[in-house]
Design a protein around this nucleic acid. Structure first.
Lengths: 130, 130
DNA sequence: CCTTGCCTTGACGCTGACGGCAAGGTTTAG
DNA sequence: CTAAACCTTGCCGTCAGCGTCAAGGCAAGG
């Protein structure tokens, strides 16, 4: 399988695949003419990468998962390093959820205040409806 | 008040203030020697900007708030345009909260699965504790 | 032979909110 | 006289994950 086919089957671009390779995440063979040649295992690797990136992981975060897959495991998350990353990410997400909730609360309060204040300074608005 | 003093009082850097000016958010006077001169009103403007950026707004998002303050209002969120932005941002945050919650759920599921799978493939671990 | 359609490497662009440095002017204090 | 401590403009660097050319090699069909 050449890079174009892999890109299509993985739902990504050739540029992206070369980028992953440049960052040590995929290691294709090379044919006589220098073309990258991928096997089915690499397809699974790329799909794992994509899935994790979609969830908000960085390239460094997915490395353990790729290594885990490449070590022969059925899924990339069963290795200790992967579990560590999962735990860390879960903690990060929880933290972010907290902060985002606080932000939401503040926005809601501010919006309520702004509307109330508008009623206060522009009472004419109450009669301007068609 | 010169740029250094404003930066300190606003809890930011001179670089940042020049950046805001370059993007049309603050309009300082100029003294005879070319130095930027700010008044108290600009301090309030800068603080408004900082507060909104901290909450996750972009520079374009804060423009209506700055204009609102400059129009003489006591707070920057009472003008229609500001309210629109607040509504939009609140919707964005809600949306993001939803997706982040889904991600959290997925991470949790994946983590649980990974740990269960480890128990399955590495039963020796149960006896390896000191 | 020419075109089409793959593939290669290399290198710059993009987004956003600045940081940091260069090279210089101004003012004050010693 | 000089150093210190301000200020000015201008321009490149940062982070991440690619997109987008540019310039060219290789393979197959008509």
């Amino acid at each position: 399988m050449l890079i174009g086919e892999l890109a299509e089957r993985a739902g990504t671009s050739t540029r992206t695949l070369r980028y992953y390779e440049a960052h040590g995440l995929v290691h294709p063979q090379r044919s006589a003419n220098g073309y990258r040649v991928y096997d089915e295992a690499e397809l699974r690797v790329v799909r794992e990468i994509r899935a994790l990136l979609d969830v908000g992981f960085g390239l460094d975060d997915v490395r353990p998962f790729v290594a885990c897959l490449r070590a022969g495991n059925a899924s990339g998350d069963v290795c200790p390093d992967s579990v560590l990353v999962l735990r860390r990410k879960l903690a990060e997400v929880d933290d972010y959820l907290d902060r985002l909730g606080a932000v939401r609360q503040q926005l809601h309060t501010q919006l309520t205040h702004a509307i109330a204040h508008r009623e206060e300074t522009c009472p004419r608005k109450r009669a301007s409806a068609p």
